[in-house]
Design a protein around this nucleic acid. Sequence first.
DNA 1: TCTGGGGTCCTAGGACCC
DNA 2: TCTGGGGTCCTAGGACCC
Length: 425
Amino acid sequence: MIGLIDCNNFYVSCERVFQPRLEGLPVGVLSNNDGCVIARSNEIKALGIEMGTPAFELKNQIRRQGLVLLSSNYELYGDMSARVQAVLEEFAPEVEPYSIDEMFVRFEGFDVATLMDHCRTLRRQVRQYTGIPISIGVAPTRTLAKLANRAAKKLARYEGVCIVNTDADTQALLQGVALGDIWGVGQRLVERLRDMGIRSAWDLRNTDPRQIRRRFSVVLERTVLELRGIPCIDMNDADEPKQRIMTSRSFGRLTGDLSEIREAIRQHAQRGAEKLRQQNSLASAVLVFLKTNRHRQDLAQYSPSDIVELAQPTSDSRLILQATSQALDTIYRPRYAFMKAGVMLLDLVDANRQQLSLLASPQTAEEGKRRDTLMQTLDRLNAQMGRGTVRFGVPRKGAAWHLRCANRTPRWTTQWGELLKAQGR
DNA sequence: TCTGGGGTCCTAGGACCC
DNA sequence: TCTGGGGTCCTAGGACCC
């Protein structure tokens, strides 16, 4: 059996652990740049505020309805996620993080009653040790476990744990589930399935998988099989290196200034190179893109991108910086107001394997060694002293790409200077 | 003024080859 | 009247996820 553990309203729950006064209030956490709502408490959901609502549309409600909107604090959320995972690992041998707030676990050798007890204990302990409330769904496949989890969260009678084991369980579960709530079925598929007369998860389960494969894809066929209790979705191994690395960000305000944009690209290139070295890969090419603000119909639109091949695969920040700068010069045009810029590192290869296959002369081997030492030193300094302690180029104050984050809470668990202070009398 | 960031997988169709 | 056909590789784009 596969369990899906999902942290309820995760970002909001993290904030509440350190600020209990937020309990019971309508709280939302905003995306980077304080752009739009990406996490919601139950209370703010009840007010009808949807995921992705732009923050500026909520200005009035902040006063009228007492909304609390916080900037996102990813350092805190990442650390809390690791703590939740650590507790899970005491209860199940295999824990596969799926996203920052969801983890799959494998439960072997339980009968249903014992498994139920086990899950309830697990839930209590996560709450006690980390302060984070979770829901648990258990089923024979990942797709069903996701749906069971959803039921566990939504329906009070489950008290946070829903186990789907028999055909009757599955039917009861699937009959109440809309197509769009199935993992892997988005809006487009919902429309096309509706045209075929398929309306609920139960309908989809009862459709011939071969027919689905012919009319849609193998992906959806697998979903149908999973709904029938036949496992066919494997997890991507969490340790697998990424195949591409992207770093991008919206600007705090629109800008057309080349030197400002170049600074942003430089930050992204360096951050990307750092991620690249972390997973011990080399990039063979870099892509740089710019975007104007598509919501501003009154402004001219231009969203170019360019790829520059590297002479040979590398993780050297300096070479990657050079290539991104070259790509930027190719695509940049004055008189546009850009909103976003980013860098992608492409065609990644394993650094170890690449070095073995290189027929390097003694000089280039020596050079390579010095380069690696330099990059390692750079990464170590930035890890110990904080991101951006050592970098190429000096970013200026007040540049457009600086993020807005007006309401970020302290990084309670990862920065000594921001520890919670307690006072007794 | 104001609208996230980072990924994956699959498929169709073009280019190219024999 | 006729102007092959099949295979492979690559890329762009679609669709989905949180």
